[in-house]
Design a binder for these strands. Structure first.
Lengths: 335, 335
DNA sequence: CTGAAAGCGCTTACAG
DNA sequence: CTGAAAGCGCTTACAG
């Protein structure tokens, strides 16, 4: 059915090796042979089959991104950075979506064992050090984004620092009851953001009021969704003594919280985390994560590790940067 | 270096065929042989190599999505639908990002010719019927989303109808000068939305004022970006006689336009197109496209065509649905 | 149930 | 510059 290198070789009166060389841009082919092969290939619509090349070369020119949720703003921007850097390199991109309710380490391991890709970028996947160590034994190039393991290169943001600074900023602004809308504690970033929040309050000599730390019931994307923030903010407003400011674990929750404030016509200063592209349109203050840069940095690390597996493990940790917009300054009702 | 089926066969004292059968869940293997193979494979950390399986089976269990821009809200939601439906089927997902400034048909053709995937979903890529016809000759299962060709199955929305109804709605609301913020005319959907807008005005006996049809200068994503809408809205406000309502080719432009109105404290009713998830948080009225459903529908069609290439070509065209929110009702200043 | 062998469509030393 | 041949790591009739 489909036409192969043999067909071209026969037509052109050369060996399959020569045909192969033409398509691999080998220099050791006479111009005459090259032309002949090319013209016949063109006429017959021949193109080397990637699947066969992959096996013969023992490489696939494929990078696989493993992620729990693709429809997530953080991932979207990270993916943008990944694509950008990959466009220059000659690699294709594969996305493997792990199912959050099945055995996560097993899914990750099996994906990698199948060996489709030359390297993997694992985004926002939480595992124990022991599980990471097991993956390490596979001897495959792997980079972590938004998580940490001593076993692998990683790119992340210091969430403790980010949450600390966010909270400290609200304290410095003079707010007395600072709430935190958190996400579900399944990942290191969320745990770290909670830690940073607590620490900032403690360092300011305040008592942490557990009632002010909460999440909505919507568990989609581990709580990183608009609705979750909406629900949580409604809860906060119902308190006998509502907070006078709020830090959110993510911008998307903050956007939900904003909506709740509008619907209830009750406004307090709000500070998010991530600084997704839309936040500027919401006038949402946020702790900025360089998501696109994190994606391209991960690719850079991965490509260099594919090149040479012995490069030393490196961890890049960005410091989130406070971006002040309307939700922590004034005029919040008109946002 | 890596361990193969031969290593397992030798250790287990069986043939490679038996090892292969065990991993392919063939029934024709004695329980004893199965156990032996499995335990040895487990001890040695063996797993079949997808690359070799692909060649031997002549199939990759891979679906490739070809798209010009990944960081686009429309695509994000379509992708969500694609992933959802693919999770059940036993296929992996590959994303191929075509570069908008190189030869698009050539990129698409080469991608497909490489033969990595068993089927392709091409999203928002515009080509001439002649170029599509050329692709058709490759004999590969292909589904189009957000574009149309008689050669392939497609899933899209009736943009003429959508824009017509959007404009008609604004007319019915009593607005006299209805502007349209359009995107760049590189794609069928944009052309259709312009057509629908014009037709609605004409059918209402109005003269189309070319001054009221415009786009911003930001050409990123063919004009489908916040900034473009922002710029366009500023232009509209500068007119001696500004419009009293506006229809936008996309929600993301409408969101930018909204921001411009806020910044200028000048408000007119605004109607978007797409109904991306965030629009409800902006209170943005919009023409709803069932993006997630379009993605899963495309996968459904693709899988059935992979199964049987002779199924008749089908075109699914959804009718956009008007969703009325604050931007076309009241209280627009407080959104 | 099991094995020997051909085949998937290429790449790549090796020898000339 | 070119070709014969081995090899990439599997799958799968075919025969037993």
């Amino acid at each position: 059915m489909s036409i192969t290198i043999y067909d071209i070789a026969r037509e052109a009166g050369v060996s399959i090796a020569t045909v192969s060389r033409v398509f691999n841009n080998s220099e050791h082919v006479s111009e005459k042979a090259r032309q002949k092969v090319l013209s016949i290939a063109n006429r017959l619509g021949y193109h080397p089959q990637a699947i066969a090349q992959n096996l013969a070369r023992k490489k696939s020119k494929l990078i696989s991104v493993v992620v729990p949720v693709i429809s997530n703003y953080f991932f979207m921007e990270v993916l943008e950075g990944i694509q950008d850097s990959l466009a220059d390199a000659d690699y294709d991109l594969n996305i493997y979506n792990i199912k959050p309710f099945d055995d996560i380490p097993l899914q990750v391991e099996n994906t990698i064992k199948r060996g489709m890709a030359e390297g993997y970028i694992i985004v926002s996947v939480h595992m124990t050090e022991q599980e990471w160590a097991k993956l390490k034994r596979l001897g495959v190039p792997i980079i972590l984004i938004d998580e940490y393991s001593s076993e692998f290169d990683s790119v992340s943001v210091d969430s403790v620092e980010g949450a600390y600074n966010a909270t400290q900023y609200l304290i410095a602004q003079g707010y007395k009851k600072i709430a935190m809308i958190r996400a579900f504690e399944n990942s290191k970033p969320v745990k770290d953001r909670i830690t940073g929040y607590r620490r900032a309050l403690e360092d300011a000599g305040r008592i942490v009021d557990e009632e002010l730390i909460l999440t909505g019931v919507d568990s989609d994307r581990d709580g990183f969704n608009e609705n979750n923030g909406y629900e949580a903010m409604l809860e906060l407003m119902k308190l006998p003594e509502p907070p006078d400011a709020c830090f959110c674990n993510s911008d998307i929750q903050a956007i939900g919280a904003l909506k709740a404030m509008q619907d209830m016509n009750f406004f307090i200063p709000l500070l998010g985390f991530d600084d997704i592209q839309l936040s500027q349109f919401f006038g949402l203050s946020s702790m900025h994560q360089p998501m696109v840069e994190m994606g391209s940095m991960a690719i850079k690390k991965l490509l260099s590790r594919i090149e040479n597996r012995d490069v030393e493990i490196s961890h890049t940790v960005f410091s989130p940067e406070l971006i002040v917009r309307k939700t922590t300054s004034q005029l919040i009702e008109t946002i």
